[in-house]
Nucleic acid binder design. Structure first.
Lengths: 229, 229
DNA sequence: CCAAAAGTGTTTATGATACACCCATGA
DNA sequence: TCATGGGTGTATCATAAACACTTTTGG
């Protein structure tokens, strides 16, 4: 069979967002209690439908904003999910996106009008449709991405301690890391700016705060440097 | 804005296949001369539209088969492309897939009724729409995938020489590899079965043929082994 | 003064890279 | 016999991993 003309089958296209956060100990996902049928009252990813005049990326940003109030966050497409019966009501192809949120600095935007709640990724409730598959794929993508690009910083406050950074990577990869080796590795990349302040929340001694130097990272990237943790 | 009900905007969903082959020297892409408007007569990826009762994966297999005659080949989803004006005729979201073809063993299936032609990836013609973006993404995905999973073997005949395997990886990664180091690395994974035959096409001495041992790979994978080149 | 987390170097092991010669064969 | 590609090992270098003690300070 040859395709010789445009065909008339149109399908509903949805977007679903896997929203990651980090609470200084664990990787978290932001889920919402679905308030329409089917599966009303069940936990779900943030989702919505694609409109005729917006790109997928624009739609993902809109959906995220409309359901959480969040904007200006890191988002990236994961992939498309298109099983025939994934949505029992109507054939729907869903494009999954994942977002990385700095919980501390965005929590005020995140009004709880929406019934959204953070869950530990290790302890998720039952999710509707194929959302758990999306989550699995998102975690595996995040693991890869965070090890080759500095996206992890999106999950931290602007200023963070070495210990927070290490705990973040431990949470993402699901294993302990030796702190001396970790600090050595981070320092060898020379991408952090040490602040003259300490965070005293986690110890009496206090630990130095750092910022990620994005400008330096971009400059180094152009010269063949590749991030790696 | 809260989403409270299913919405009526439906959109045409397409599939496009980036088909990789390897001719013992270069990575190739199979392209087709588009025989319908718009852009009739221009080179294009293999594409088609999603039907109501097939999954994305099924549709990709069908599209590939209908345009090339190929079946039972390695295929994997890349991602969705959804710019508003990517198709000038009608709003279309396209899900890109890439396929890995063993040219030698599939060339007989690949009837040339379809006007398909192999192009060197380093020397592609102008492609319609955003197909070049899809190709770029596919190459970069293939580089990653081939370095962490044994998908490269999909591009080779069942029996192949070390030299062919090396040239394949050189083509995928776009750089020369030292043959002693390459052989050492391959042998250290212990995944190939040396045949008692030689391929005499490329030299008078002839070079030994090998098969990839998929069973052994699966067994080792279950025990924590990870492929890596 | 002591509990709790911060900070810091060295040694060892492993894997990556660089490098050159002999072999087999058909023409 | 010689031109062509096939096959092989060792030494060096770089990165990763293992590992333990001292410092600071608020309570």
């Amino acid at each position: 069979m040859k395709i010789t003309e445009y065909n008339e089958t149109k399908i509903q296209v949805a977007l679903d967002c896997i929203i990651f956060g980090f609470d200084q100990e664990q990787l978290k996902l932001l889920l919402i209690k679905r308030d329409f049928e089917p599966e009303k009252g069940k936990w779900s990813l943030m989702g919505g439908f694609l409109k005729a005049k917006e790109s997928l990326d624009e739609a993902a940003v809109r959906v995220l904003h409309s359901l959480t109030g969040l904007s200006h966050v890191y988002m990236e497409q994961l992939s498309a999910f298109g099983g025939v019966n994934r949505d029992p009501v109507e054939r729907t192809v869903s494009i999954a996106y994942y977002a990385l949120i700095n919980i501390q600095e965005h929590n005020h935007e995140l009004s709880n009008d929406f019934g959204a709640k953070w869950f530990d990724v290790e302890d998720l409730p039952h999710l509707i449709f194929d959302h758990m598959d999306m989550v699995q794929e998102a975690i595996s993508r995040l693991r890869y991405k965070a090890s080759v690009k500095p996206v992890g910083f999106e999950l931290l406050p602007e200023k963070f301690t070495m210990r927070q950074l290490q705990k973040l990577y431990e949470a993402i990869h699901g294993r302990k890391i030796d702190k001396r080796n970790f600090v050595k590795k981070i320092n060898s990349m020379d991408l952090l700016i040490k602040q003259n302040e300490k965070d005293k929340n986690s110890s009496k001694k206090g630990s130095f705060l750092y910022k990620f130097d994005k400008t330096k990272y971009n400059r180094k990237s152009e010269n063949g440097f590749t991030f790696g943790i």
